[in-house]
């Protein structure tokens, strides 16, 4: 997929009358919650690998196009919890105490990517396609 390089971020007013600059970049936002049900139980390790891959791919896609990452976050809600986050560098991984031992046949990941320099449509398309590919791995 080829992307156009953005040298300047699109600006908008954000409705502020402020002594500082009224204009700030308008980020593209992708935010969804999925309810996944598996035919058989899946290990937390595999879920973590799949979702970490998505964060890496969005981060690297943003970096490759010189976009600024606001943040990329995932939170997996269930009996156990997983929290992944990145601002364009390392991926921070936090989880509940029993996460590593967990096997489950259903899980609800909420995913958000806020990226400056691209459009909502472009981010949505890239994020959706790559998320589906990562979830297909499960």
């Amino acid at each position: 997929m080829s992307e156009q390089q953005h040298e300047h971020f699109p600006m908008h007013s954000h409705q502020h009358s402020h002594e500082f600059s009224n204009e700030q970049p308008d980020p593209a936002i992708f935010s969804e919650t999925h309810s996944l049900v598996f035919l058989e139980k899946v290990s937390s390790e595999k879920i973590q690998q799949a979702l970490t891959l998505w964060v890496e791919e969005i981060r690297d896609w943003a970096k490759g196009n010189a976009y600024l990452v606001g943040h990329i976050k995932i939170f997996v809600e269930g009996q156990e919890n997983l929290w992944l986050s990145s601002t364009g560098g390392n991926i921070n991984i936090k989880y509940s105490p029993e996460w590593s031992e967990w096997f489950t046949d259903k899980v609800s990941p909420s995913v958000t990517a806020i990226i400056f320099g691209t459009t909502k449509e472009t981010l949505g398309e890239v994020a959706q396609v790559r998320l589906q590919a990562c979830l297909d791995y499960l």
């Binding site: 935010s31 909420s110 958000t112």
Partner: peptide
Amino acid sequence: VGETGIDDKI
């Protein structure tokens, strides 16, 4: 800012 929250769930 997103339609779906994450921080609230955390």
